[in-house]
Nucleic acid binder design. Structure first.
Lengths: 140, 140
DNA sequence: GTCAGTGCAAACCCTTTGCAGAAAG
DNA sequence: CTTTCTGCAAAGGGTTTGCACTGAC
């Protein structure tokens, strides 16, 4: 998973193309960071990482790109904090702990939490996703 | 539950006092709306309702009061939409459907959804709350 | 040349804050 | 009186938008 490797770049390129997103330079920069491993990053964090060694992608493009990736299913928006959105590069079904003290978001092991049943949805609607957030704070 | 009745006002007054919130005029206006029935209102909606027949409470006071009520456990913040916070006057444990098309928030019958088990929390943390959001949209 | 993509700065919108005046006890 | 609340307007902060420029085909 070397972020520099040619193989990894090819893999990321394919992933974008499969989602119907043309792999421009800036999108590749952002995608390579996100897809390097499953992680939760805010737009600001992505902006900082991608521009760590000099300006590469503008703020507007980071926001636009993350929004695009989310619409295309490449990342998942996690809404736990009214002040910012997190983007999760793990799109498989799983849930989250949110540390309200630190703002840290971590995965819940998929097998350690199950919903007992799916309730009847409101009339005329279909489920789009289920989010479970367990809010935690430093004990005592 | 007549919002005008003296009994209801007394009840609301007591509820505020029990939570350690002094029942000022503006807080009473807001509390009476919220506690009339279990409901989900954004700050803006509260502002509109409370000031429907003439200005009664300022925007700043609505935000401050809702934040205070939330800290005191009188209402529960529901974070489902990055653009606004909902305040739920039903503080008993329950979960929500969120209609992403309409922005409508509705309760899930408490008995129709159960978590199978509580996963192990991250080290040094204690649970503060569990939120389950089922996002739905108009079918077909 | 055309059109999608990008960058910058300004605009947006919900929310918070600073501070002076008003109300509560 | 003293302290807490409230209101106003301004500031804040994440996100979006308008528009001109760039670059890929």
């Amino acid at each position: 998973m070397d972020i520099e490797s040619t193989d990894y770049r090819k893999e990321v390129t394919q992933r974008l193309q499969q989602a119907g997103v043309s792999p421009t330079q800036q999108r590749m920069e952002i995608a390579q960071i996100l897809f390097a491993r499953p992680q939760h990053l805010s737009a600001e964090q992505v902006l900082n990482i991608v521009n760590a060694q000099g300006p590469v992608v503008s703020k507007a493009t980071v926001y636009n790109t993350l929004g695009l990736f989310a619409r295309k299913g490449l990342v998942r928006e996690v809404i736990v904090d009214p002040t910012k959105v997190f983007y999760d590069s793990n799109t498989s079904e799983h849930h989250h702990f949110y540390n309200v003290d630190t703002g840290n978001l971590t995965d819940i092991e998929p097998h350690s939490l199950k919903l007992e049943s799916m309730p009847t949805l409101p009339d005329g609607t279909q489920a789009e996703g289920v989010d479970v957030i367990i809010r935690v704070r430093h004990s005592s």
